[in-house]
């Protein structure tokens, strides 16, 4: 097997230069999907028989909740790759994924809360699902704080990777919490096995929004990664040249 791509991926410079060309395309597809999904979900999907229009929050709530969990896996796996192969790039991606994942989790909590008021009758309840997602938010915040706490970058990276790995057990707990315990939160609508319990006319915008949020997460992580690359490689010639060029253009 040819491992060249893997080693190239490990080069911050290669990553930075490669992604420069990708960004506008990813952004274009992301925002087109997002606009289509949102407009479809808000104005064209039929209203729900029981919940009326309030269910339209699902088109944001579920995709950001999916990404809050998928993003955590991405962060933890990047941390593991960094720990095992001591790959610079892996740690940079891990550090970049933390704030994006934290915002996704925050949004899952906030949109869920806004949805809860008109349907359940409360903004918040300490059931197993909501509490475990709050723990997820604190895990992300922990990784962000830990990164700032150490003077030495290598130590900080390793500590963050270990915290991410320890926290990984929370993801299956969040996912299964609604099946294992009695909660106010309802079980999953889109199931990994078996049929979804949402009418097809309401499902398509949901699938579009899930795809849009996956792409958005990728886009945001690439942007954060690029800045972190420049920060960490600031003493190298190529970064210095790149910034000089950008400064020249600005004048």
């Amino acid at each position: 097997m040819n491992w060249q791509w893997f080693h190239r991926l490990g080069s911050p410079r290669w990553f930075y230069e490669k992604t420069t060309g990708w960004l506008p395309w990813i952004a274009l597809v992301t925002f087109s999907l997002m606009i289509v999904g949102m407009v479809w979900g808000l104005a064209f999907a039929p209203l729900d028989a029981k919940q009326g229009n309030s269910y339209r929050i699902i088109y944001l709530h579920m995709p950001v909740a999916v990404l809050s969990m998928a993003g955590y896996y991405a962060m933890a796996i990047a941390g593991a790759v960094g720990l095992i192969w001591r790959m610079k790039m892996a740690f940079i991606v891990m550090v970049a994924a933390a704030p994006v994942g934290a915002v996704m989790t925050f949004l899952a909590l906030v949109t869920g809360s806004i949805w809860g008021k008109p349907t359940w009758g409360t903004w918040w309840i300490w059931d197993a699902r909501l509490t475990s997602v709050l723990v997820l938010f604190f895990l992300y915040m922990g990784v962000i704080a830990l990164q700032q706490a150490y003077q030495n970058r290598d130590t900080a990276d390793k500590a963050c990777a270990i915290l991410s790995l320890v926290g990984m057990v929370n993801i299956p707990i969040i996912y299964k919490s609604v099946d294992w315990w009695s909660t106010l939160h309802q079980p999953a609508t889109i199931k990994m096995v078996g049929e979804s319990t949402i009418d097809p006319s309401m499902k398509y915008p949901l699938l579009i929004m899930i795809a849009a949020l996956y792409l958005f997460f990728t886009l945001a992580v690439i942007l954060y990664t690029r800045v972190e690359v420049l920060r960490r490689e600031s003493r190298t010639q190529w970064v210095s040249d790149l910034l000089t060029q950008a400064a020249n253009k600005r004048r």
Binding site: P46, L47, D48, A49, K50, Q51, Y55, I58, T119, W120, G121, T122, I125, L184, Q186, P187, A188, T189, T197, I198, D199, S201, M202
Partner: peptide
């Protein structure tokens, strides 16, 4: 002292529900 509604995971338009 407080009553909360627990809704389910099914979503469907009114016609389908009918």
């Amino acid at each position: 002292s407080e009553v909360l509604a627990k809704h389910d995971e099914n979503y469907m338009p009114p016609e389908v529900a009918e």
